[in-house]
Simulated scan of single mutants.
Amino acid sequence: MFDPTAFDNLKTVLEGAVYDLDLAGEIIVIDRHDMVDLAHFSRAYTITFCLSSDHKQNISCTIRLEMDLEQIAQELLQRAVRPGCKLMIAFSLPIRRHTTCSLIEGTLLRIWGDKRIIRQTLSHDFPNEESVYHNEVTIEFGRLIYEDNVDDLQEMIPYMLDSLEQLQPFYKS
């Protein structure tokens, strides 16, 4: 019989929580990937959604859950070390001015707290200098999450929804 890994269990809970919101009409799931990388022997799951009120899907949230070779091997070989996964949350939105980034960071720090690592990466099409920047804002936790953090994982979902709502005023600002 198949014994699911910590990754499988966390992915199932995460996926269920997100799809429950999709079924309730609060969000729209717009993308999902469940990948096994045989070259590096790792697993990654991403699910991307936006608020259902965002009809053009301008601002999205992507949740990424990863388990690398070291963690997978420890779990499968039943080592004493507790296997865990990396969790990252990313928000994607277009902005017009790079000065908006400090306002976005302040907004997300109020929601997620100052113990999180928040990174913003801007890109735009060349050579059009008038173009809108694509802002990819990532929130990293700086630690692994474990199966006993499953409640914490579910409690993060309202923070993601709040973040999507709070980022609305920055759309193309």
Rank of each mutant, 00 (worst) to 15 (best):
L108V: 07
E140D: 03
E165N: 11
R79C: 03
V81Q: 09
R110E: 13
H134I: 10
V132R: 07
E105W: 09
T121R: 05
P158G: 06
T138K: 11
I89D: 00
S123Y: 08
Q120E: 11
G113L: 10
M88A: 09
A90T: 10
Y133Q: 02
E165M: 14
Q120Y: 01
E136D: 06
Q168A: 06
V137Y: 04
E129A: 12
Q168R: 11
K115V: 08
T99E: 04
Y133M: 06
L87S: 01
L144S: 03
G142K: 15
V150A: 03
F126C: 04
F91W: 02
R110K: 12
T100Y: 07
Q166A: 15
Q168W: 13
N135V: 06
V150N: 02
T138F: 05
M88N: 09
L167W: 11
G106W: 15
G106V: 15
N149Y: 09
E140G: 09
T121P: 01
Y171L: 11
L122F: 07
L161P: 05
E105T: 13
L109W: 13
I111A: 01
R97T: 07
N149V: 06
Q120N: 04
E155M: 10
E155D: 05
L167P: 06
T121F: 09
H98T: 10
P94N: 11
K86W: 08
Y171K: 09
N128D: 04
R116C: 10
L108M: 09
P158H: 10
G142F: 10
H124N: 07
N128S: 13
T121G: 01
V137C: 12
R119D: 03
D152M: 14
Y171A: 00
D152G: 06
Q120M: 09
C101P: 01
Q120W: 02
I117Y: 00
E136C: 05
P169G: 03
L153I: 09
D125A: 05
S131K: 15
E129C: 04
